[in-house]
């Protein structure tokens, strides 16, 4: 063994200096990990819906309540908002602020249209007496679809905030990073919606 031990210095069990990373280098990965944890929230809600989705308590079932044309329209809104956000990201990569902002506003409008349609659907259901309290199926339905709607609501608030940030401070590296995080969030919500329209709406109507 040729190990030499310097008896004079005390052993160090930590890094004497933090490894250097460029500012914000870990943000995207961190945000991705957040999205994965959010994915688990939705997985739990999907599991609840799978278990309780057939407990109607004598109340109305999916076939009486769901309007697939409305859901198809809603799906289109979210899909359009996904691609317009993508176009905004392409403009951002070219540092073209104005077209980027226009695409972001269009994305926000599609998001608002999605929320309006969803709330209309909810209010129709509640007006017909299909409230979250009336059966386990409806509790699970409103929790799952409502949580997704809540995510879209907060995504929209975030979007408006970032539009104002860019207007005020320009397309700084901070704002670019924030816009990329929101991009992940927005596309992620569209992925969750695929699960919602497939498992809740389409499977309920087959």
């Amino acid at each position: 063994m040729t190990m030499t031990v310097d008896t004079n210095s005390t052993p160090q069990f930590h890094l004497s200096e933090e490894p250097h990373h460029p500012e914000g280098a870990s943000t995207m990965l961190g945000f991705w990990v957040y999205l994965m944890s959010d994915c688990l929230i939705f997985a739990v809600l999907f599991a609840v819906y799978a278990v309780l989705g057939h407990s109607f308590a004598g109340g109305p079932g999916p076939k009486e309540l769901f309007d697939l044309e409305l859901v198809a329209l809603n799906t289109a809104m979210l899909l359009f908002s996904s691609i317009t956000y993508g176009f905004a990201m392409l403009e951002m990569a070219r540092d073209r602020v104005k077209p980027m902002l226009i695409w972001l506003v269009i994305t926000g409008l599609f998001g608002a249209a999605f929320l309006t349609i969803e709330l209309t659907e909810f209010s129709h259901m509640i007006a017909e007496g299909a409230t979250p309290q009336s059966s386990a199926f409806l509790s699970a339905f409103f929790t799952l679809v409502g949580t997704h709607g809540l995510h879209v609501t907060f995504g929209s608030i975030w979007l408006i905030t970032l539009i104002l940030q860019v207007l005020r401070f320009g397309l700084t590296s901070f704002n670019k990073r924030r816009l990329m995080c929101l991009s992940l969030f927005w596309h992620f919500l569209d992925v969750i919606w695929i699960g919602v329209f497939t498992f809740v709406y389409l499977m309920g109507m087959i």
Partner: peptide, 8 residues
């Protein structure tokens, strides 16, 4: 990260 017009 952003992909391109074609991928979108």
């Amino acid at each position: 990260d952003h992909g391109s017009m074609k991928t979108y």
